[in-house]
Design a protein around this nucleic acid. Structure first.
Length: 874
DNA sequence: TCAGACGCGTTTTTT
DNA sequence: ACGCGTCTGA
């Protein structure tokens, strides 16, 4: 076994003060005590090990050497990971600061930290190297910035900044930015960086494919620009450290000595750059394989290219054990399209010879039916490492996986809504239900339906708080104050609010900035003092420059929240929104307040800016009982008692584009996505397909997904779609599908799932439905997390299910009768122009009538379509 | 500087 | 079909 803490140098420069005094769970500083405690815990199985199954325990206790844990869905992956860390700490194998634990998302990192905290107490605070690839990358880069040609206070650009920057470069090259969209090039750069490729390393073909063959030059120009801006994009947070490690063996060696244990979550999602990064850190000087081969002579074993060991790896020190533990599930690899390489997990044993591979196959989540369906489906994929999930949950009462047919997406949404209400009547918690869709446009139908039903829902994923315009603007102000050289931020807000600084004025600042080689803010100050400008913009510039100078002066002696408020006030930014008459304005002001409030948790403006750059998400309230709606992708890692999976049709799922662009592997990724969807369910699982769906505006007749055919009959039951769908039942479905044999053609009538219980809830920020007048919903949703009222009826477009549903349809539950009515053509009692009242939307005038569906222009809530049963004459 | 027109894209998403 | 973003004209 490798060293106890006493013979390991203690790196404390990056430790939080807390870790200096080791908490009780830790071996006390001295070696003997540590050893004694370690010995004790090794002999008596400590608490944290009890309750683990044998495989889990093996995964926890196999601390030395490379370990791959193949953790199927619902097999306790996170538990293993966290317990393993607790075990390493409790047995004195390493200090908290000697463990590198990487995740993909902030959410995962948070959860991990929290759960380790439960196991080991405060020691988790001493784990500076627990975080996302990117946050750890930043940490590394801040320490060694100069080795990447940066100053340690470099800024991190987000996607928006990057696109604007690239656009400037494209224009500077004299290229048509229409023909060569900046967004597309940003994606290309992202792709290259995902593979760890710099401008010189990209394939000639790729380089030629953009900007009249100037792709490479453009990429180079982009990197140069980042360099002069002292800035980094997300990709650089990985690529710079990789380059530093390669070029500075001494630095790499420092980290080799530092990290005794490396743990990686969701290994199947790692991209090539992350893989290289990990390998550099994990692969200790070992002279046997690979290292002896000169880098140039080694054939890159895949398209990604260069895997040559860093010099340090080749410069033979004695081989040390590589204590790396990667946890993942190849069957849940669903991010191939953004650069993830399933191959990384598939070839783990080759990369780390002698690796222990531990399979976690005991599923604690789902019923045997659900598991059986999922396993059978995923077995259609080739090239898996292969796992057989099993469960001991075998209850004769368990519902089979239900497959439902609907005529179109509207009926689908209606029927799902009904099912949800039925469950609700049986005391099921809405929080325990989820609708998982393939593509976000599918959400709309459900949202619309739930709004009319008054059913609470929350949409998870999508545009996030820090991506909102007002938040970005405010952040840009803060960035310029904290970091005067942040030209991108400066440009963003120099004329927001409008100050009469048009394109010409900004260009002038730009040119001056270039000529004098100073940041734009400085150039602006200079220009304001010169006579080169017309009086009006000159005065405006002078004011801007003076403002920033003043705020910068306040930076070090004013509480940062106060400073932030001052900035927003004095710049006129808040004023701008106060004067804005649009419906979103109040929400935006509210968001700005929330922004300031959330700054309180941070020590300084700088600390806050760093946080925002890396953590783009924000917590959301989980208190409200609401149905969860999200994409299959964002459902990974979550679980619900009842899961609805709509839209299982060819073309949508599997998605046509995945098939066109990904071929067979594209199909397999879609199948994995289906697998992820199925395995989210604990008790009840409902699959839906429709015969008709509107795609890109036109109605298309669709056929059921091939994935439905891949489900095992023993675990699946076809539901008759209830009794109230006059003419749209499954019976006629079979006929419509003539020409395709459908194993579900002949179906039995049945009722849907019965059991249910309460469980965890998940939530992330609200989703601003890109299209619609739905902005207010998310604003309120977001605001509500800090104790704001969820309801803000009274202005703007109040809609959505957030906070709704308690009163509006009480006693009006939609049952057979009403639904039947909704599809019938019985004329409405209302006529166009009537003044009506709706519980949720208030008063409005009827604009159009179709059967009993009314289109109403609400005074406050905008135009909505509702059933006539929900309104009364006003 | 702003409003209206026109045209394009429309799977999945983290950092 | 439809929204969003950008361009153009007043």
């Amino acid at each position: 076994m490798s060293g106890f803490p006493d013979d390991i140098p203690f790196f404390d420069e990056d430790d939080t003060p807390r870790s200096k005094g080791q908490p009780a769970a830790q071996p006390a500083g001295g070696g003997i005590a540590a050893r004694a405690m370690a010995a004790r815990s090794a002999h008596r199985a400590p608490d944290y090990l009890t309750g683990l199954n044998p495989e889990q325990r093996l995964a926890v206790e196999t601390t030395e050497g490379p370990v791959l844990v193949l953790a199927g869905a619902g097999t306790g992956k996170t538990r293993v990971l966290t317990t393993r860390i607790a075990h390493i700490l409790a047995t004195g194998r390493a200090w908290p600061s000697q463990i590198l634990a990487v995740t993909f998302t902030n959410k995962a990192a948070r959860e991990m930290k929290q759960r380790i905290g439960v196991l080991v107490g405060e020691a988790v605070e001493g784990m500076p190297w627990l975080g996302t690839f990117h946050s750890i990358g930043v940490k590394l880069l801040r320490r060694h910035a100069e080795l990447a040609g940066l100053r340690s206070d470099f800024t991190i650009l987000d996607t928006d900044d990057v696109i604007r920057l690239i656009k400037q470069l494209i224009q500077a090259e004299g290229l048509d930015d229409k023909r060569w969209p900046a967004r597309q090039f940003a994606q290309m750069i992202d792709g290259w960086k995902n593979k760890g490729l710099g401008p010189e390393e990209i394939a000639e073909g790729d380089a030629r494919a953009f900007a009249n063959g100037k792709g490479r030059e453009l990429y180079r120009a982009y990197q140069d620009r980042l360099h002069t801006l002292n800035a980094c994009d997300f990709g650089d947070l990985l690529c710079h450290p990789i380059r530093i490690f390669r070029q500075h063996p001494d630095v790499l060696r420092e980290y080799h000595a530092k990290f005794k244990y490396i743990l990686v979550d969701e290994y199947q999602d790692t991209n090539t750059a992350q893989y290289m990064w990990l390998r550099l850190l994990a692969q200790r000087p070992e002279t046997k394989r690979g290292a002896a081969v000169p880098a140039e002579g080694r054939k890159p074993d895949r398209a990604a290219g260069d895997f040559s060991p860093a010099p340090a790896e080749a410069s033979g020190r004695s081989a040390a054990s590589v204590n790396i533990c990667c946890v993942g599930d190849d069957d849940q690899s669903i991010y191939g399209w953004r650069g993830a390489e399933v191959d990384n997990i598939l070839r783990f044993e080759k990369d780390f010879p002698g690796a222990a591979v531990i399979r976690l196959e005991r599923n604690y989540r789902s019923t045997a039916h659900i598991l059986g369906a999922a396993s059978h489906l995923i077995a259609h994929n080739e090239g898996r490492l292969g796992k057989t999930l099993f469960t001991e949950k075998a209850d004769a009462d368990d519902a089979k996986v239900m497959v439902h047919a609907a005529w179109d997406s509207e009926e689908e949404a209606r029927a799902v809504g009904e099912e949800i209400e039925a469950l609700q009547r049986r005391q099921h918690n809405l929080n325990d239900m989820a609708i998982l869709v393939r593509a976000s446009f599918q959400m709309r139908e459900f949202e619309d339906r739930f709004v009319t039903l008054g059913l609470n829902y929350r949409v998870i994923g999508g545009p996030r708080f820090y991506e909102r315009q007002e938040i970005r603007d405010a952040m840009a102000y803060f960035r310029v104050v904290a970091q005067g050289a942040d030209d991108l931020a400066f440009e963003r807000i120099v004329n927001v609010p409008k100050r009469g600084l048009g394109e010409a004025a900004i260009r002038q600042v730009h040119d001056t900035s270039r000529a004098l080689r100073v940041p734009m803010l400085e150039a602006a100050a200079k220009l304001a003092e010169s006579d080169e400008m017309k009086p009006k913009p000159r005065a405006a510039l002078r004011e801007v420059a003076a403002n920033f100078a003043r705020w910068q002066g306040l930076l070090d002696n004013t509480p940062h929240t106060e400073l932030a408020e001052t900035i927003l006030e004095e710049s006129g930014y808040t004023e701008m929104w106060k004067n804005d008459r649009s419906a979103e304005a109040p929400g935006r002001l509210e968001n700005l307040k929330e922004l300031i409030r959330s700054m309180e948790e941070y020590e300084s403006l700088r600390g806050f800016l760093e946080h925002v750059a890396l953590v783009m998400d924000a917590e959301q309230n989980e208190e409200m009982d609401a149905v969860n709606i999200m994409t299959l992708h964002s459902a990974k890692g979550l679980e619900f008692d009842t899961v609805f999976l709509p839209g299982w049709e060819e073309g949508l799922f599997p998605h046509q584009r995945a098939l066109d662009e990904g071929g067979r592997s594209g199909l397999e990724e879609e199948r994995r996505l289906a697998y992820v969807g199925l395995t989210r369910a604990k008790k009840n699982l409902h699959l839906w397909f429709t015969s008709n769906r509107r795609i890109h505006g036109l109605w298309q007749s669709t056929i059921p997904s091939r994935f439905l055919d891949e489900l095992p009959e023993a675990h699946v039951e076809v539901a008759e779609t209830g009794s109230s769908y006059g003419g749209y039942g499954t019976g006629s479905f079979g006929e419509r599908q003539a020409g395709r044999q459908n194993p579900y053609g002949a179906s039995r009538f049945d009722n849907v799932g019965q059991s249910g219980s309460f469980s965890n809830t998940y939530a992330t920020p609200g989703w601003q439905r890109a299209q619609q007048n739905r902005t207010e919903a998310t604003d309120r949703n977001w605001g509500s997390r800090s104790g704001h009222s969820v309801e803000r009826i009274g202005y703007g477009e109040v809609d959505s299910g957030y906070g709704a549903g308690r009163t509006s349809v009480k006693g009006r539950t939609i049952e057979g009768e009403l639904v039947a009515k909704s599809v019938s053509d019985s004329p409405s009692a209302f006529k166009v122009g009537d003044r009506v009242f709706h519980q949720k939307f208030g008063n409005g005038n009827i604009a159009a009538i179709e059967g009993n569906k009314l289109t109403i222009d609400f005074d406050k809530a905008g135009q909505k379509r509702v059933l006539d049963g929900f309104v009364s004459a006003a």
